[in-house]
Amino acid sequence: MSIKQGKHIAIYGKGGIGKSTTTSNISAALADAGYRVIQIGCDPKSDSTTILRGGNDLPTVLDTLREQSKVRLEDISAVGFGGVLCIEAGGPVPGVGCAGRGINAAVELLQELHVFDEFKPDFVLYDVLGDVVCGGFAVPIRDGLADRAFVVSSSDFMSIFAANNLFKAVNKYAPSGGARLGGIIANSILAAYAPALIDDFAGKTGTHVIGYVPRSLVVAQSELYGKTVIEAAPQSEQAQVYRNLAKYIDENDDSVIPKPLNSPELKKWAREWGDRIFEVETGVVHEMASI
């Protein structure tokens, strides 16, 4: 195997939590800062890089592999905003085949095509489907492919649950050369308690939050235009949030092996937060508590 080009980052998170949006905006911010970036969507939905490419179609690696015996990089990639090289692994239609094996096959092909040697990226971002449901979805964090994994999570319990599952996978693979955890990207922050809840989960699992992305209309609007916030609203506050995330990823190489909570611990933790939120919402004032 050739010497690895650039920093390889895997971004995980529960489906629908905004990881493609976050990843694309980080890619765009890195590209805007002058770096060469590859973003690889590792999700059968194959819509990871849509907003980097103005919503244009891009044949997926697996679809191309199915149709053609010889695949060239041009067939499966498109250059998006800021020169970001966009690749979608793709996968089977829902309910058929094995998407996990698909990720494996797609990554193998990219290595065979020497994509990283030829493009010489400064950053490679893998945008991976949420729950690490099987070994296939752990490919980017296994075998030394990505150096660090980040998880995008909101304050919803199921999102935290998915993050905890990723921590389990990192915990399993990191000691044998797999990716370590870079931190949590707190997304869709709206409720007042949300940052504290995510901070608390990060503390409990031995990691930290690298940035808080507020829920914002600018994101939704930019997406409707088929663009990242960096491209559509570069002066917005939201764009600055993504730039800060990109800056953190660029400047910090900190990583940990997280300590995932086991099932009873996670349930207990969630229940305690349920009680706290209820008390805040209903205005319960505890003895000796400062208001």
């Binding site: 697996l62 199915r66 996968g91 089977p92 058929v96 085949g97 094995c98 998407a99 094996r101 698909g102």
Partner: peptide, 10 residues
Amino acid sequence: TQKHVVFGGG
């Protein structure tokens, strides 16, 4: 082959 694993072999 691999493509039948990925996309289903039906």
